[in-house]
Design a protein around this nucleic acid. Structure first.
Ligand SMILES: Cc1cn([C@H]2C[C@H](O)[C@@H](COP(=O)(O)OP(=O)(O)OP(=O)(O)O)O2)c(=O)[nH]c1=O
Ligand SMILES: [Mg+2]
Length: 655
DNA sequence: AAACAAATGGCG
DNA sequence: CGCCAT
DNA sequence: GTTT
């Protein structure tokens, strides 16, 4: 979704309509209107540092407005025009180069009069709004297929030429080669004139009747400003109501408002639930939080395992899909599978299937097909070789969906292709190590081996500083019989005024430090020398920080496989939150954090924070950090969240 | 018809 | 920043 | 894809 709301009123000078008249316009009318303004040179066309990256594009923007165009729709239309696009007010494929939409399939079909997005001409891309916003990035507009609105209508652009291809993103990259956008486009694009100086040509390119030169390329723009915003900080001042002059805390009234809101919800409590749980669950669509439900610990073989197996293949497929729809389907099928897993009897009818939470009519049908035939025929079409290849590539540490798709698109099919650097593939250092030990890293180890390796490490740590707390977390702490890696947490009490990095913050005298280099640095050095740690993947850069993360490989002895190992060091005050985080599992953590979020809190590996103000239109975005209310013990955090205490082995929510 | 949303850090 | 990792 |  859109994150910023920084755009000033886009339209400068009215020979125009009154505000009221504008507000009453329907989307198509507004599109035509703003087109006329643009034609008259009355739209400021290049507001920011980037060039008119939409120059020459003829875009139909389809939003869900019923009557008048909403402010957001107008905003976005303004934006499109401002960056050089020509808005086409109706769905008219012959005169379009792009369709941009926020609609789901059904809405889109209704709006365009088509049966389905499949019926859009093959060369005409239908893209999400997010694609437009990528034009502001350093790398310029993203490739179409990465932002396809619907997974059955994905338009690919021409393959990036050798020289352009990259394995690892380059931050300072400016424009894009023209061939990126050149081919595979609507037929009317061929042989368009080069837009030359986009700036100059734009003046005469606006009329809707004329087909503007399409692929006006962004030329490398000398003065692209580099975003300097600090991570996690709000980029707007939307939360400061009155300029926030000299007040101690400009957000004070928002704290009060947030608190009041929470308390209101608390009063409308259901007796069945604890106050906080109800407050949080009240606004929620899919009911309770997973972390609230303590698993009964019973294990039995599932009578519908075959169904689950087939549906999981569908999850695999959609996991590799790049669209938003795919993302939601992954979630939807996963929820359905969780529902099915709870059943103690074999599903016998579609009615029975439909009764399962998370199973709707489509999934119920699929379930019955599996029950009756043992197989889901749809999988024959969607579970392709390409899916398997993408999964193989993503098995390399440091390779995610983007790089995997890039390699596939470039023509790579096997790990040997990657090893041989075919098609211009380049590897980062971590990827290189990941490929070298591909099989080792992807194997899980018996918990006994994790234990044994840990016992090589712990004494070394304690010999550096006997007051350290050192323990294995992750799946090992949850009691799993096999572990994907070893997760080690390190901290140290400060009752003697020292910490696991010594006292360097308060004491400059190196002779008084407990550990001259900091525990972790000394420990890693020692373990390298002993041959326990064999490769680094990710080494902390600022060793002065109390919170450090290390990732690498290790092995029990020269005959052992290479195993992934992670270290996390934290301030002693954070130990409860860190324990909670690092014990997981990941799904459990997300559930706890989601609940915290909905309660007006925020939970991370440092603690539980209250009075967190979030952006109402994007709840993931925080306006402030909040004030810490729990961090020293796990139990305290459970209590404040109203989650029943659960031992590590009970905190399993994922497969 | 709209919602569905963890939170953080390192690399290049 | 965008990607990848936990 | 499902739920509200
Ligand atoms: C991967 C991941 C882990 N975590 C937390 C919870 C995990 O238990 C902890 C360690 O991460 P992992 O080592 O990736 O997970 P794990 O130890 O639970 O399972 P495995 O046996 O496969 O190693 O970090 C998250 O909070 N979010 C994540 O996305
Ligand atoms: Mg682990």
């Amino acid at each position: 979704m859109e994150r910023l709301r920084s755009a000033p009123p886009p339209v400068k000078r009215p020979a125009k309509k009154s505000k009221k008249a504008v507000a009453a316009m329907r989307p198509a009318e507004y599109a035509a209107y703003i087109g006329r303004l643009a034609a008259a040179g009355m739209v400021r066309r290049r507001p920011l540092g980037r060039g008119p990256f939409l120059a020459g594009f003829r875009i139909f923007y389809a939003d869900g407005d019923v009557g008048a165009a909403s402010p957001m729709t107008r905003d976005r239309m303004d934006y499109l025009v401002r960056y050089g696009a020509t808005l086409v007010p109706t769905y008219d494929p012959a005169h379009l180069t792009h369709v941009v939409t926020t609609l789901d399939r059904a809405q889109f079909a209704r709006k365009t009069g088509l049966e389905s997005p499949r019926d859009v001409p093959d060369a005409l891309p239908v893209l999400r709004w997010e694609w437009v916003k990528t034009g502001e990035r350093a790398g310029g507009l993203a490739r179409w297929h990465e932002h396809a609105a619907y997974n059955d209508h994905v338009v690919f652009e021409a393959v990036v030429p050798e020289g352009e291809r990259r394995t690892v993103p380059e931050a300072c990259r400016r424009g894009r080669s023209s061939s990126v956008q050149a081919k595979g486009k609507a037929a009317d694009v061929e042989g368009r004139p080069d837009a030359g100086d986009a700036e100059a040509s734009r003046i005469s390119e606006f009329t809707q009747d004329r087909l503007a030169g399409l692929a006006a390329e962004q030329k490398p723009h000398a003065s692209v400003q580099k975003a300097q915003r600090t991570r996690g900080e709000p980029s707007t001042s939307a939360a400061t109501p009155h300029g926030g002059g000299g007040a101690a805390d400009p957000l004070a009234e928002f704290y009060a408002a947030a608190r009041a809101e929470r308390e209101t919800e608390l009063r409308s409590d259901t007796p069945l639930r604890t106050g906080h749980a109800a407050a949080a669950a009240g606004s929620r669509q899919t009911g309770a939080f997973q972390c609230d439900i303590v698993p009964d610990g019973k294990v039995g073989t599932c009578p519908n395992q075959d169904v689950i197996d087939e549906l999981n293949k569908l999850v695999k497929v959609h996991r590799q899909g790049a669209t938003r729809e795919d993302g939601f389907k992954v979630g939807a099928y996963t929820r359905a599978i969780n529902g099915i897993r709870k059943l103690k009897t074999r599903i016998k009818s579609s009615e029975e299937a439909l009764a399962i939470a998370g199973v709707g009519s489509k999934t119920a049908q699929k379930i019955m097909e599996i029950i009756e035939t043992g197989h889901l025929r749809r999988l024959d079409h969607v579970l392709t070789k390409e899916i398997a290849i993408l999964e193989t590539f993503q098995g390399i540490y440091g390779v995610g969906p983007k790089v995997a798709r890039q390699w596939l698109a470039a023509g790579c099919r096997t790990l040997d292709d990657i090893r041989e650097g075919k098609h211009g593939v380049k590897l980062s250092t971590a990827q290189h190590t990941g490929l070298k030990y591909y099989d080792d890293i992807n194997a899980r180890m018996p918990r006994e081996e994790a234990q044994a390796i840990f016992e090589l490490i712990k004494p070394v740590a304690l010999s550096i500083d006997p007051k350290l707390f050192v323990d294995i977390m992750g799946s090992f702490r949850r009691g799993k019989a096999d572990c994907g890696d070893i997760d080690i947490l390190i901290t140290r009490p400060t009752d003697d005024g020292k910490s696991h990095i010594g006292r360097r913050l308060h004491c400059k005298d190196p002779r008084k430090l407990t550990t001259p280099l900091g525990v972790l640095r000394r420990l890693l050095k020692e373990l390298h020398e002993r041959g326990v740690i064999t490769e680094d993947l990710n080494v902390p850069e600022d060793w002065d920080d109390l919170e450090l993360v290390y990732r690498g490989l290790c092995r029990r002895d020269s005959k052992g496989l290479q195993r992934r190992i992670d270290f996390l060091t934290v301030p002693y005050k954070s130990r409860g939150a860190a324990l909670l985080y690092y014990t997981g599992d990941d799904i459990f953590n997300r559930s706890m954090r989601l609940k915290a979020n909905k309660m007006g809190y925020s939970l991370n590996q440092r603690g539980l924070y209250a009075n967190v103000i979030r952006n109402p239109s994007d709840r993931r975005q925080k306006f402030n950090e909040g004030v810490i209310i729990a961090s020293e013990t796990e139990r305290e955090i459970f209590e404040k969240l109203g989650v029943p205490w659960q031992e590590p082995h009970q905190r399993v929510r994922g497969g």
